[in-house]
Amino acid sequence: MSLLENSRKQVFHVLCLLMLAVIAGSTLISIFTEGVQLKIIKDLCMTCVLFTGAVLSIALGATGVPNDVENRTLYPIIARPVARWQYVAGKFLGTFLTVTLGVSALSAVFGGLIYHYQGSFDWFLPAATIFALLEAAVVAAVATTLSTFASPVIAASVSFMVYLCGTIKIGFFGGMLDLATNSTVKLVGGIVYHFLPNLECFNLKAALVHGDSVPTAYLAQVAIYGLCYTVFVIWLGAVIFKHREV
């Protein structure tokens, strides 16, 4: 149901078409030598896949529950033998499936481009896409959970902040925290730091671009981490929504 609803939203079509245009536009860059050009195409396309996943997750996840409450389409559903956690989980899954649809379409075009330029298929691309989707799942979980109690604007803004901070967590945020001297700032910053999702680890763009291999154990750890974080955040959303009066 959420999938049908989300896939009809303008943001889904506009963003997917825009990113397809960016991917198609990347082929126009011919100022570099052939090897570098392929790297740039991979870099640009993977950026599009990651960006689309995150932005769609925020835009769809942050509006799902508030729209249902505002349009009163929520009432007939929760009047059924549906537990609140099932509703929140359903909203999250709907958002995630829509994102999967968009990201898979972009990734398929991206794969076609790589095949065209490289002459062979890059088998690391599906893995990189799956981890991009895992990142989208974490972001969608954060947006859905925030939307269970906040307005769409606040939920989207905070989710976007979490996404931005999460993508620079260890590389930048951690370094900034080390430089802080005030103990209160260090304590509060430390708590925020440890609860922020580590979104950098889902970004396998560098491995795809440079053709490096990533240890399987590391990938398994990232997958477990992504699943745990997503389930935890959705559980939090379910607990909040269970106690919410609608």
Partner: peptide
């Protein structure tokens, strides 16, 4: 208990449904 609502049918005042369905 959500299972209580297995035996209940509810019509809200001025019902709104997803228009595309």
């Amino acid at each position: 208990d959500p299972l209580t609502r297995r035996l209940v049918g509810y019509l809200p005042e001025q019902p709104y449904f997803h228009k595309f369905l």
